[in-house]
Amino acid sequence: MPDQIRALVEGGKATAGPPLGPALGPLGVPIPKVIAAINEKTKEFAGMQVPVIVKVKKDRTFEVEVGTPPVSALIKKELNLEKASGNPKAEKVANMLIEQAIKIAKMKEAVLLSNDLRGAVKTVVGSCVSMGILVEGKDAKEALKLIDSGEFDVKIRAGKTELTKEELAKLEQEKLALAEATKKAREQAEKKAQEIMEKMTGRERSEIKAALKEAGIPADIIQKLLPVEAAAAPGAAPAAGAPAAGGAAPKAEEKKAPEKKTGEKK
């Protein structure tokens, strides 16, 4: 059974330093050759952390097995996204073409629980639902229905993954437009929330929060404008009868037992 070294490396940028170098040294393999093999196999994942396994045999020959980053990481890399949407139902952050979904599906096909490329593509598109990403300009759930109906069968069967410069440029423009639309929508939501809160001045927090939810205000905006009551400032005396921060209401002062005089029998 060969020795196995497992590590997480940046795609195309593995080095002879930790964690690989110190682990490979005692096994007697040519470390520069191992590093070169890893970088060649992981270069398509530049900028991402990639799991690798180096198997070293008794004759000091080696094999490199490369895993792939999670689907969500591959989607963000493909679309040049820093993060997914924090409110995926209402706020979309990018649009993905079916060719890009096919490209990611082919990277992950071996480990995805699907019987064919079409199923792998559906898994990728399904991940877009929770990330706030459109697919072919449509909600990801709608795109899944189109895949089931055969809308993209020709491209999927062909394994088409190439995009033109014009298509890529258009996707970037759409991403900027979505970001601007999200910004305006959030500004409008905050303004609406402020109006509701002003009308409900003096009402219980729970009532105000319920009204904001009913009006469709995003949860993070509600939290921002209606934070949980802050604890009393350090050193400040609580109001009469008010519970101490994080504790129960103070108990009534207990009467002290009379002190026994010296020599008094117990």
Rank of each mutant, 00 (worst) to 15 (best):
E99N: 04
P32C: 07
E229D: 05
K251E: 15
A257T: 12
L81G: 04
V124R: 06
L24E: 12
D139K: 15
A110Q: 15
K184R: 14
G12P: 09
G86S: 13
V129Y: 01
A257E: 11
I102A: 03
K106S: 10
K106T: 08
K83W: 07
L97W: 07
M1P: 15
A140G: 01
I5N: 11
A143R: 02
D3R: 11
R6P: 11
S114Y: 07
K261S: 12
A185C: 11
V71L: 04
R157M: 09
V64K: 03
D116P: 01
Q4W: 01
L134E: 09
E264Y: 03
G241A: 05
D3K: 07
Q49L: 15
E78P: 00
K251V: 15
E174P: 11
Q188W: 03
P218A: 03
A210S: 03
P227A: 08
I75V: 12
G235M: 08
S114C: 00
S72Q: 09
A73V: 06
K192N: 10
P243H: 08
V54I: 13
K76C: 06
G12A: 02
P250N: 12
L134A: 02
G47K: 07
E204Q: 13
A233C: 02
A84F: 05
K13Q: 13
P258Y: 05
S85P: 09
S114H: 09
S130D: 15
Q194D: 12
A244R: 14
A239Y: 03
E204M: 12
E142K: 15
A140Q: 05
S72F: 02
V9T: 06
E229S: 12
V124A: 04
N95Q: 10
V29N: 08
E180F: 13
L168R: 12
S130T: 07
V50C: 10
A23H: 05
D59T: 02
A140K: 01
K256W: 01
I5W: 11
R6T: 10
N115G: 15
A181Y: 05
E10P: 03
V52R: 03
